[in-house]
Amino acid sequence: MENPGEPVDPARKTWMSLLATAPGARLLQLWQAYGGQPDFNWLRPPEIGGVMVRGRMGGTGAPFNLGEMTVTRCSVVLNDGTVGHGYVQGRDKPRAQAAAVIDALMQTSAAPAVRRAILEPLTTARQASRQDRAAKAAATKVEFFTMVRGED
């Protein structure tokens, strides 16, 4: 643990979360198109592992272990000393590498360019896909109507 008790950085939390769940092919495509890939050294080369996903009894109660999911993680350091961490869902080392380097770049002066080239398109795509699923769900919402039967 390098910096326990570090306050939550909401912006960093948002972009790391976005990178963790981004579709692999799309992330790598945007990353390659970005073109400004810096040199870096590994602090921790990509490794594949599992995390235990927990649920809550009754949705709100005490936690229990539901089952595991696969995760790939790695850490990089740029030549200027900036450290980046990549945590992505599934088994995908190139994607974890891209996520870690992007995390590092987002802490440098390259942040606005990276945000424009990678994070914004990913955010838009994620929102669009969620919206579309929600729209399909909404179309299956039951509209009840009451039929009056018999005489009273």
Partner: peptide
Amino acid sequence: PVEMEIPELGFAIEIGEIDLTE
């Protein structure tokens, strides 16, 4: 969304998204 505390960061991030039936 699935969130996990990341020891290197000291805070939780979303590490994935899973389909569930409850």
